[in-house]
Nucleic acid binder design. Sequence first.
DNA 1: GCAGGATATGACAGCGCTGTCAATTGGCGT
DNA 2: ACGCCAATTGACAGCGCTGTCATATCCTGC
Lengths: 334, 334
Amino acid sequence: MRVRLEDVARAAGVSPKTVSRVLNDEANVRGPTREKVLAAMAAMDYRPHPSARSLAANRSFLVATVYDNPSSNYLTEIQTGVLDACDEHHYSMMVRPLHADSADFVQRIDTLISHHRPDGLVLTPPITDHPQLLARLHERNVPYASVSPMRRDGSIGAFIDEPKAAREVVGHLLGLGHRRIAHVLGHPAHGARGWRLTGYREALSAAGIPFDPALVVDGDFSFSAGVAAARQLFSLADRPTAVFAANDDMAAGVIWAAGEHGLSVPRDVSVVGFDDTPISRQIWPTLTTIRQPSREMGRIAALQLLAALRGKGEGRMVQLPYALQVRESTAPVG
Amino acid sequence: MRVRLEDVARAAGVSPKTVSRVLNDEANVRGPTREKVLAAMAAMDYRPHPSARSLAANRSFLVATVYDNPSSNYLTEIQTGVLDACDEHHYSMMVRPLHADSADFVQRIDTLISHHRPDGLVLTPPITDHPQLLARLHERNVPYASVSPMRRDGSIGAFIDEPKAAREVVGHLLGLGHRRIAHVLGHPAHGARGWRLTGYREALSAAGIPFDPALVVDGDFSFSAGVAAARQLFSLADRPTAVFAANDDMAAGVIWAAGEHGLSVPRDVSVVGFDDTPISRQIWPTLTTIRQPSREMGRIAALQLLAALRGKGEGRMVQLPYALQVRESTAPVG
DNA sequence: GCAGGATATGACAGCGCTGTCAATTGGCGT
DNA sequence: ACGCCAATTGACAGCGCTGTCATATCCTGC
């Protein structure tokens, strides 16, 4: 038979409730008592029964990571980070892929919540900014943390300074002498689309380069959108000498299309991406991009959520650092 | 207050135990009784409390997916498939990344099991074939299903006929007239290494082509291993006209290295991969490869596990179909 | 129509833990 | 040394469900 809390209590010579207090790290337990209990727990290799805890405490010790993101690299990183945080505090994590644009999206999350009763959610873009969902979560009083949400006020989670990062990567192109720099936009539902565009415009403007709408092409973060955008850009009479794609997948698409048009990267055209996903090292030429600390973002977001859940403070919106990764897809303008 | 089983029982005019029977799909409930209960459940939107169920039934209704696989695409697919299966039977899934070669690997799984008490595990390569782990699982009597394990006898899960698939993709190259076909090996810990090599040798042998050890190069499924292997192959005096890389990432590396050597794919050299991961469509040229139904493999493996867990039959080892995807990285020998 | 076995339903306790609240102990000022 | 308040500990019930076993009901063959 497994070791129960009662067994630990008997061994330590205290009541079960006191063991429970130690287990849950509650205040008002005298030092020596705590030591005794801790020692007994360790000696007996005691593991609390999660279901019993949940049932009695009316909490699940469960965090759900909810996503609708086609990039498995990004997702896996976030997920691993959230897991890191959960492990640190003996929470469990479940994952839930969803389609944010499906009619029953909110209802599916509702079902998830009624069914599994997570204590909180970790949301990833673009689900971070789904108005009906957020309304429903507030209504049901379900705490959540967001990774890179559009609106940061009043919510908790983690983010990087995206406009600044975009300025930096465009600045890298400017520093190489490029003046006709195109931009392939991100998916409209993602905050990143706006931020990266803003950074692009600010960098150009700071360099005194007028904004040319013809050089900004729609996209949706997919490889094929990068291909389509590049076909359009490379057909322009006055071709850009550099392309800032709003993420790595699209940048890979741009490079692919460059080959199709007989253009060599970076000799004829420089290309930069954003995110530093593995693909940026798995294409030729390797991609200059912005490294985003996705795993850490997942971890920090989850930690803030857990802090709020455990009543240790409020939980904050934390800014994390990014880093420009210069690789082989960029060169001085020819 | 939430609806409890007792409330449903009262509404349906039966005892709580009968509602429990209906809920758990047990035998020995008369048709009309079942209908009444089902109707009451639906009317009241009843959701069983997972923790209460777990505590009373001494089962967690939880499946853990355990992996040590650098390919997030593959992983996300498997994970989604396992989730599909869990949803079908109202189980939960947790995920656990691990390092199979770390010293405390088995102990970590031990901890996972003591801590979260999953009813069963889904293992993915290469964890499917870790002798100490399997021994420990048998010892602790923890059921598991495996995706593409090396040893299929006596275990449950899902697989494809890998040697046959490898024969087919090599056959495709032979059909294009290639005779000097190289092979880049997979990671030694994965069954796929052996199977794909076997298929390669069988295909050559069937075509009456002698086996040339110089054309078989070590690898580990990573992009950079593909690059390294290709550098070696392309430096050979008698260069191969085609390369069968044991997975897509390595094939992408081979294509990358081809560019480095001034070789055009597929004009100078044809390249094929295996797995049909997204990268096979995100490189230029797009990759001829074998499509493996990863999501379905995850789902089927989990379904077999659940069948065993729920006492509905034994759980089998199920073979799933693959499909050759011919794309642009292969052409008739020049 | 009835015995007898099979099938269906219910009563009850208890899974392992925590919330509530009462009882006890300790610390401190005088 | 004593009273008093706060800090600490414990007793007890119950979270929502299912296992066990007893009881009730159904059906069959004669």
